[in-house]
Design a protein around this nucleic acid. Structure first.
Lengths: 138, 138
DNA sequence: TTTTTTGCAAAGATTTTGCATATGT
DNA sequence: ACATATGCAAAATCTTTGCAAAAAA
């Protein structure tokens, strides 16, 4: 089954109608290791797809757990396929994101639950630094 | 030395002019355990201080390392005094933040450096769950 | 044919900016 | 006096929304 079929199936499973817009938006995000902003996704799509449609669908996909939203300080988000859990390493200069596999920090999470009045159910861990290219530039 | 004097000293050390606006803004944030949005800070201040002035100064303070900015998905930030490093536990319902002390994850950071092409210099780790009050509500 | 989705343009929310005026040093 | 900060209103960003027209099931 090719990428288009997979995408369509994913939409059906989620109870969403299969529209060309959705198929194309999802296909753009679906390859692993991609982290795109709404703008970047929109730019890669044929021009009949509106930015508003991109935003609307990204929100649906996030709500249904098909994709993850990564929020940043500048007020914009990046999106990735939901799949294997992993952490992120982010370049402070060009904002490129790379996935990084490491055992989940479940004990730190338990400690957080124990030491605060919260029932903790997940956490986010992001590493910041400089990527190879940006290091060579400066 | 009282809070006002401490605040003024901090401003001078940072090379900033001591204006009443700055003293009041900084005093609002300075007590430990506080995590306020620009709006919340502004609301607590006398009305002669503009929201624009609050934003401008928050940015200066962040750049000078006097305070930390915590960014969120909804596009708004919260601010806290810079001081002892700690992690945060965030309520998914009311967004209340509580500080949480735990040894820094330096080895995970080294692993991130080692396993990616990045030179990592810091990380952020946030725990999400429900606070006591919100749990009792639902 | 019924319900959902799209596109458009307009509105929202948060944050930044330009410039004249006021203030700190 | 001089440089910097403030206030104001307007602009900039990113994202959401209302509603009529279009498309999916």
């Amino acid at each position: 089954m090719d990428a288009e079929q997979l995408t369509k199936q994913k939409l059906k499973e989620s109870g969403l109608r299969v529209t060309p817009q959705r198929v194309l938006i999802l296909q753009t995000i679906i390859s692993p290791g991609q982290h795109l902003t709404a703008e970047e996704i929109h730019r890669q799509l044929p021009s009949f797809i509106t930015l508003a449609t991109v935003y609307n669908n990204l929100r649906s996909f996030v709500n249904l757990g098909i994709i993850n939203e990564l929020s940043f300080g500048n007020g914009s988000s990046k999106y990735e396929v939901a799949g294997e859990k992993h952490y992120h390493v982010i370049c402070e200069s060009c904002h490129k994101i790379v996935d990084f596999n490491y055992p989940r920090l479940i004990e730190v999470e338990s400690a957080a639950s124990r030491l605060t009045d919260y029932v903790v159910d997940h956490h986010t861990l992001e590493f910041y630094g400089l990527c190879n290219e940006c290091r060579n530039k400066s």
